[in-house]
Design a protein around this nucleic acid. Structure first.
Lengths: 229, 229
DNA sequence: ATTACTATGTACCGAGTAG
DNA sequence: TCTACTCGGTACATAGTAA
């Protein structure tokens, strides 16, 4: 369902129109009220509510307030937009994220080579991953927003397991295209699923070698979130 | 502003999800209520309201109701969608309409050649139109919806005038591309502006000849509704 | 000028229930 | 079963006003 309260939609739209998507804009409750055709008090309360939930941020300088929509706020409105896109245009939401390659701790190779995971990869995503993950740092808030939105989309679930010594958490995957040509998948591990500024990518081959990547190189990842329709 | 009442948005989305965009679907108020997380009574009332405004149509067969969204209903939700598209993606709404060429009464040539109009065309749309309009019949409801939505968009206004004998109504124009290559404009005349199944196209040249068109041929018209931003 | 409090009104919702 | 009425409660809005 729609995460944003319907009564907040008009004020969200006006804020976006004023450019509050990523920068602070200066607007009075009275002027906002006129735009959404409600009273100043209503606008004021809406802003307080949105601030409370964490969908907008405000800072006062002098008497006036500046307003910016937070990443969470942008995410919920994006959510609504994509839902409408789906029902109106029948389009699959396709996400493109751009990030910078960086070196992790090398633990990806360790996890990817474990049979408990590998078996499931072969079964559910159709390939046996090269032992190692490619780490991408998402630099822009738009990219992190896409990443965050991924969480709301259907995914391929990989169960956790234990080997007597310790337990290994679950993971979830999204099939993806790397630089619009290589097939692979985004993998989100339980232990790190709350970090929206990083994605880990796996593929049947060594992506780093194949694309001759070094740290700091840009890479694009395209995710098709819906399997059909 | 948003023409659809915000409290109706969730039910609109559910109806679209169920495919009520162009066909009747069978759904109970109870099941709709569950989907939008409201009571059966609320769902019932919403449907009555939407029916009242003319955004949905219902027909009862036996005890049950079938629901379809009307063209007006589709237009308002499209409106919201495009507004979101604009504020989120910063995209210009571009409309493509497809229609079939047909012969009118030939009166287009008469109007287009009048100096009272020609002067304004040259000044406001930048060309002296070939004396004659090309009539397009919009066959699908999607196309008619686009046409209807045009009315809500900013346009080039052409004043009416009188020549002592009779008065000539106003017109409005939208710059357009014909088959994605020829420059021209859609012209909507006051006397016919309520007919959403037809559009008239003008251009500096004879479109019919240039594209070797005959009645029944398909033509696409692309309109850029916003001049900038 | 601001924003946001309190008090009062209205619109919207759900419970109960009829047709 | 279904839809949709009445009615009483709640959520949301505005008026008035303080800071």
């Amino acid at each position: 369902m729609v995460k944003v309260k319907t009564r907040h939609i008009p004020i969200f739209i006006e804020l976006l129109l004023l450019g509050a998507k990523e920068t602070y804009i200066q607007v009075s409750t009275t002027s906002l009220a006129n735009k959404i055709d409600k009273s100043q008090q209503a606008a004021s309360r809406h802003l307080l509510e949105l601030e409370d939930i964490g969908y907008i941020k405000r800072k006062r300088s002098g008497g006036k307030h500046s307003i910016k929509i937070t990443e969470e706020g942008n995410a919920v409105i994006m959510d609504l937009y994509l839902l409408l896109q789906r029902v109106i245009e029948g389009k699959k939401p396709v996400f493109e994220m751009n990030g910078e390659v960086f070196s992790g701790l090398g633990e990806g190779a360790y996890y990817m080579s474990m049979n408990g995971y590998r078996r499931q990869f072969v079964k559910h995503i159709g390939f046996d991953p090269y032992p190692g993950t490619l780490n991408l740092k998402l630099e822009t808030s738009a990219d992190r927003q896409q990443r965050r939105f991924l969480d709301t989309q259907s995914n391929i679930h990989i169960d956790g397991f234990e080997d007597g010594q310790r337990t290994y958490g679950w993971a979830k995957c999204y099939l993806a295209k790397i630089n619009n040509k290589l097939d692979g998948a985004i993998i989100i591990l339980e232990r790190a699923h709350y970090d929206h500024s990083v994605i880990e990518v796996i593929a049947p081959i060594n992506i780093r070698e194949r694309l001759k990547l070094k740290d700091g190189d840009k890479l694009s990842i395209t995710v098709n979130t819906m399997k059909n329709q």
